[in-house]
């Protein structure tokens, strides 16, 4: 393939080398081309947070990210924050606290919360609220999501 259509980056810890002509959007690349469907499409406009992935460890909206921009960088999706067996502490807390109802927002929240807790292992309620402000949940009223994240942070 012509090198300008080639995209190389690390995805969930593995190198990938894909055909990706511009202007491919990261969310489309993940969901359509790479069939990683854990990352959800709620709006395509940066207004819901369902498509959140980690870009070099920081939350990013994949629907607003040109795939080209992840060249040589590290992308982590919900599949990448999930251990091979069982659940991560964040995921376990979401299940136990009832922080997922319809579940469509959940991968985005789990990814966001994972990044938050890596950067700040014991976030306050205000810090949690600020971190998830870009993620819409229409089911839970956020109450149990905040509880779950706080529980992992030991607060």
């Amino acid at each position: 393939m012509p090198s300008r259509d080639r995209l190389r980056f690390r995805l969930n810890g593995q190198p990938v080398d894909v055909f990706c002509p511009d202007p491919r959007i990261l969310l489309d690349l993940l969901r359509e081309d790479l069939r990683l469907t854990g990352t959800k499409r709620g709006c395509d406009l940066g207004t819901c947070g369902c498509c959140t992935v980690l870009l070099d460890g920081r939350p990013a909206l994949s629907c607003l990210t040109l795939a080209r921009l992840v060249e040589s960088r590290e992308v982590t999706t919900i599949e990448g924050v999930t251990p091979p067996q069982g659940l991560s502490p964040v995921q376990r807390a979401f299940v136990e606290h009832g922080a997922t109802q319809c579940g469509f927002c959940t991968p985005g929240f789990v990814v966001t919360a994972t990044a938050l807790l890596r950067a700040n292992p014991h976030p306050s309620r205000e810090e949690i609220e600020r971190a998830i402000a870009g993620n819409l949940c229409r089911c839970t009223g956020y109450t149990k999501i905040i509880e779950a994240i706080a529980a992992v942070g030991g607060r």
């Binding site: 969901r31 469907t37 959800k40 499409r41 659940l87 995921q91 299940v95 997922t100 579940g103 789990v110």
Partner: peptide
Amino acid sequence: RIPYVEGPLKVTGRAEYTDD
């Protein structure tokens, strides 16, 4: 307090919605 039976699928992105 009964956690949702499909919770583990939802928190890992493995629950299958129509677009998936």
